[in-house]
């Protein structure tokens, strides 16, 4: 495919309670086959999607958080998390799962895909995207 666009998947909602987070991840996985420049952003309650130790036994839903850890295998290398959203919810980077990707430009070294950035930087990430899919 000749024309590569910057796709930004904007995740704003908690992982459970509504289906948006799960169906967002389904788009990301399918979209990975199109070899576009893909970023994921997590703001507001969306930051809960990446928290460690999720247990959905009590609600009859599949815990899909392990799928995020596989995103590196799909060549998804940029997961931006908004610092203010974390702080407003009493969370820090330590509460988040680890997602890594192999950097082909650096001898396939494993590098963290999650980058905690400020709200102002998040605005720049959004402005820089060609296509924003908001969930």
């Amino acid at each position: 495919m000749s024309d590569v666009k910057k796709f930004l998947y904007l995740n704003r909602r908690a992982p459970y309670g509504t289906i948006y987070a799960l169906e967002s991840l389904e788009v990301v996985l399918i979209g990975a086959a199109f070899e576009q420049d893909v970023s994921l952003a997590f703001v507001d309650d969306g930051v809960f999607q990446l928290t460690k130790g999720q247990n959905t036994d009590g609600i009859g839903m599949k815990n899909f958080s392990p799928t995020f850890r596989a995103l590196g295998d799909y060549d998804v290398q940029k997961l931006f998390v908004e610092r203010e959203s974390l702080e407003e919810r009493g969370l820090s980077e330590d509460d988040l799962i680890e997602v890594v990707y192999e950097d082909e430009d650096d001898d396939w070294e494993e590098k963290p895909a999650i980058r905690v950035i400020s709200r102002a930087e998040m605005a720049d990430v959004m402005a820089d995207a060609d296509v924003v899919l908001s969930f």
Partner: peptide, 18 residues
């Protein structure tokens, strides 16, 4: 059809409006 049609639409159009 599949979700690929959504991605393809994003690639082939000038704007994607949600």
């Amino acid at each position: 059809s599949g979700l690929g049609q959504l991605i393809e639409m994003g690639i082939q159009t000038d704007r994607l409006v949600t």
